[in-house]
Nucleic acid binder design. Structure first.
Lengths: 191, 191
DNA sequence: TCGCCATTTTGTCAATGTCAAGATAGGGTG
DNA sequence: CACCCTATCTTGACATTGACAAAATGGCGA
């Protein structure tokens, strides 16, 4: 992030600058390998400037998670109805917005009682529940099917992000995920 | 962890005491929410004592991950051959040894070049590869099937541990995982 | 008895998260 | 235009942390 001022005081939207700097830092060294002061330095402000906007480190991560869940819900809703495409969108978000995703599913890092965050979270969950219905063999299995489909794509994302699929390192994660979901959903074409 | 000495110097197996203290701390506040000095305090030794055994914080987490992968491989091998039971064992380990599991799949926290760790990791992977064969519809799909089965159980574990399955909060995770895996593998009985 | 050496302690330093108090600017009100 | 008001940012401070260096301890063999 470029400094938002050159000299003297400046009332800019530090909020955005700090969140962007945090995303960069998380991309480099994980959700816990950075410091607030370093972010402030990157944004060109004093070490305590972020505190006014986010309160503390947990507050900043709460903002990141909330924004992430919002983007996540948007992405899933764009594919809603087509179970395969929702799954692919899930993986695409995880890989394409890794810093967000890594914070979102680490609740000990942020405050779950944030209202915006909770709303976006439920919005994303609703897409998963409604879209997995077509995969269910019988209404009695709807809930299990949702959990299975969610687990499949969430696990694929987690394994990919943690580098646990080394033989797949040079493949396109989205294409591989599509093949895996197809196999799961009993479709024929193995991509 | 109880202090390992009462007064004066003591040459005990501080190594074990510190690892146990770390597991406790990780269980309480996640893989990053604790401090080396706090561990030393819990073990009843001076603040720099752990450094001799582990080098630095990353070294301690490497030891935790290596030990975890060893126990993990043992657990999977005990169920080897039966794909359903391997999957259940995977989830049981994640839930029953949460601190280990949370460190193991966060490679940015430890050193992956540790030889013991790599050996145990490959041992666990081999069980997954060989045991998922029975689920594959055709030899050409073996690799996709392994990735799918692994993703399913890994994702279930991750979602459970992150509290993302709230409606399942009071169910037995092992039984629920068994049902989900059965559904995935095309078996009939929905548990 | 003596010295060796793994182990642990003590002391120190820069960096970090957080709090409190002061400085700045820009807009609204008179 | 002068004034103040408030959000925003800075400065200064403090306890805690991870890491390093040097000293202390004590068991064990020569």
């Amino acid at each position: 992030m470029r400094p938002i001022k050159q000299n003297g005081y400046h009332h800019g939207n530090l909020r955005r600058a700090v969140i962007d700097a945090a995303l960069e830092a998380i991309a480099e060294s994980g959700p816990a390998g950075w410091s607030l002061r370093e972010l402030a330095r990157r944004a060109g402000v004093s070490h305590a400037a972020p505190a006014h906007h986010f309160g503390d480190k947990t507050g900043l991560l709460t903002a990141v998670a909330a924004e992430g869940f919002g983007m996540f819900a948007d992405a899933l809703e764009r594919a809603a109805g087509d179970a395969l495409e929702v799954g692919v969108a899930y993986v695409r978000f995880a890989v394409g917005h890794r810093p967000y995703f890594e914070v979102m599913f680490r609740p000990e890092l942020y405050r779950m009682d944030d209202p915006d965050l909770a709303t976006a979270r439920e919005r994303a969950a609703r897409v998963l529940v409604t879209s997995s219905g077509t995969l269910s063999p019988a209404p009695a299995q709807d809930r299990l099917t949702t959990i299975a489909a969610w687990s499949l794509v969430h696990g694929f994302a987690g394994l990919w992000l943690s580098g646990s699929l080394p033989e797949a390192a040079h493949e396109d994660p989205e294409a591989l995920a599509r093949s895996v979901i197809r196999l799961f959903s009993g479709m024929s074409s193995p991509g």
